[in-house]
Structures are given as C-alpha cells and as structure tokens.
C-alpha cells in the first residue's frame, strides 16, 4: 500500500534568523532540503541545526505534543513543530515554506521568543482552583463525568502560545488578555470545585482586560494544535457574565442585548436604533459619519425598515425561547 512507501521531495525553506544581542535587523536564510514523508516540522529544525548551521536556535522538549515548547509559524500558520507532518504542510502551501517564530517582534534568537506577556496574562486570571479544601475530608470530592464535560476540553491547553500570538487584538492592544488566558479562565470557571467563580468573572468583565474586545476572527480556533477552540470559551464566558448576573451595563453588553430587542421588534436589525441603545449619550461621536451615510442612502429610519414577514412567529419564539436576562 502506498501509505507504507516513504517518498521524498525537495522543499525550499526560508528561515527567519535573528540574534537580538548581535543583529540590528532580522534576515531570512534559504535552505533547500530533501524532505521525506515520514518527517515532521521539528525534524527539519533539527536537521538545519545538526547538519547546516549549529547556531540555529529553537525550543524543543517533549517531542510528543504536550510540552508546548516548539510552537512556531509555517507560512503564517501557527503549528507545533513536533506534531505537524511535513507532507501536510506541503499539501497546504506547496514546496516553498517560510519558517518563523510565533511572534517576530518578540524574537530573541531565531525561533525563540520572549513569552513574558503570555505568562503574565496567564497568571493574572488566577489559573488554579480556589477552594476551601478540608485537610482531612470524610468523603471524596466527586466530579461527575457530566460535570467534567462542562470544561469542554479547555483543560487540554498546553500553553504553547499559538493562539495568543495568532490573535490580532493582542498585537494592537497590550492590555488584552488574549485567547489562551480566557480559555484558561473558562477552564476554572466551569470547574464545579472552584469557589472563586464570581470574583474571577468580575475581574474578567473589567473593560481594560478586554473580554469584550475579542474581534471574533477565529484565528485562535484555527491556530490551536489541541483543538481547545478558545473563541468558543470566550463566548461561553460572555454567556456566563449574563447568566450569573455579573454583566454590568457597558457598550458591549448593551450591544448584545440590543440584538434581541431589535429582532423582537422588527425581525431584522434597526441599525441606527441599536447604535443609539448601545452607545447612549456617546452617540454624538457617530453623528458626522451618520450624516455622511445618510446622504449616501445608507441609513434607513425606523419607520422605513422592511420588517421580516411572519413577524408574529419571531415575536412568539423570542418570548418562548429566550433564556437570558439583563
């Protein structure tokens, strides 16, 4: 069978090189190598170091996809070097591959980056169980399989940083906690043994750290090598804020609620009305743009909105299916 045949093909690698203590600017080194169908990306990194340039630097440890040390980017795609098969990379991108660290601006030496911001944010969400544990309990503290399922595999995170450095908001806003920290927060929020539920949620809700600043781009879900799906956990945290009564009124929470109100009234969105509801008096800052859009026929007044047909069905469903309160 063909799956047992080892094949070889030539690949051109463009490899990011930089030594922060010597180089003024980074540069790319080109290597052409014969790659076999048996190899993973880490094998290529090893061969570059062992056969071509001993000064080439990268992190590696477990070689089993659990330590998270070897995460890098191939053609912009975050990947765990020890887990990613070269054949799959060639299938995705062809025979010209660019190897880069997870974050170029945090590069220290070649693939090695300073992950300080990642760990700082990770620590800030109190990534541990907070619980009054009896020293000599009389019974086991049982967690049922159903309760454990609530973690939604958030506990599979290996802190590799792939999602954090794929997140566009982390690049723009240094206060933003990032997808890994939020997924970790969810992991403890969803744990029935944790007693700090409310406190942690309240902290996450503070604007500066940006639980509401996620742009919903799904880069984190795409980047995660363990299928943790961080954006799903961010959505769950949003829902928790409402269901636990922790959500306070801010532009983001009002905006989420405005969707329900508008749908109940029109079936569709009342775009102008929603911005007014979400922004409150801050609406004034949108006036210049609103005028410009109005003159171009881009704003429909509430009385001009084409409501959904069979609107009574929608009203009925909103009344009977809505579970959230604010």
């Amino acid at each position: 069978m063909s799956t047992h045949t080892i094949t070889t093909q030539q690949v051109n690698f463009k490899v990011f090189r930089f030594n922060a203590s010597e180089d003024y600017l980074p540069y790319y080194e080109n290597y052409t190598m014969e790659v076999t169908s048996e190899e993973v990306v880490l094998d290529i990194l090893n061969r570059i170091k062992w056969e071509l340039d001993g000064s080439f630097s990268y992190r590696r440890s477990c070689r089993h996809g659990i330590c998270g040390a070897c995460a890098i980017k191939v053609n912009g795609r975050s990947t765990l070097a020890c887990k990613e098969r070269m054949n799959d990379m060639i299938e995705l991108f062809g025979n010209e591959l660019t190897i880069e660290p997870l974050s170029i601006k945090r590069a220290v030496k070649d693939m090695i980056i300073d992950k300080g911001d990642f760990w700082q944010k990770h620590d800030a969400i109190h990534p541990y169980l907070i619980s009054d544990v009896q020293e000599h309990p009389e019974h086991e503290h049982l967690v049922t399989p159903k309760e454990a399922e609530e973690l939604l595999e958030a506990d599979l995170c290996i802190q590799c940083g792939a999602c954090h450095y794929a997140c566009p908001v982390v690049e723009v806003n240094s206060d933003f906690f990032g997808p890994a920290a939020f997924a970790k927060a969810y992991r403890f929020e969803a744990d029935v043994r944790d007693d700090a539920h409310h406190e942690r949620l309240q902290e996450l809700h503070k604007e500066k750290q940006g639980l509401w600043d996620c742009v919903k781009c799904f880069e984190c879900a795409e980047a995660c090598p363990k299928d943790v799906n961080p954006i799903d956990k961010i959505t769950k945290l949003h829902q928790m804020l409402f269901s636990e009564g922790v959500a306070t009124s801010n532009v983001a929470t009002r905006h989420a609620v405005a969707f329900k109100n508008s749908i109940a009234k029109f079936g569709v969105l009342d775009e102008g009305g929603m911005i007014l509801y979400s922004e409150g008096t801050s609406i004034v800052k949108h006036i210049p743009l609103a005028i410009k859009m109005f003159t171009k026929g881009k704003i429909v007044p509430p009385w001009g909105i084409t409501k959904s047909e069979n609107l009574d069905e929608i009203k009925k469903l909103v009344a009977s299916s809505s579970t959230a309160k604010f």
Partner: peptide, 21 residues
Amino acid sequence: EASCCGASHLQDYDDFLSLVL
C-alpha cells in the same frame, strides 16, 4: 420571512434563542 442571524452578538447573550431563530 428571515430574521437577523444574531451576528455573533446575540450568541454572546442568548445562545439558545439564536439557534432557534
């Protein structure tokens, strides 16, 4: 007859309603 899809915002608030709609 269609309503709004929720635009990922209703989903933050009321997941089940967004599924029904």
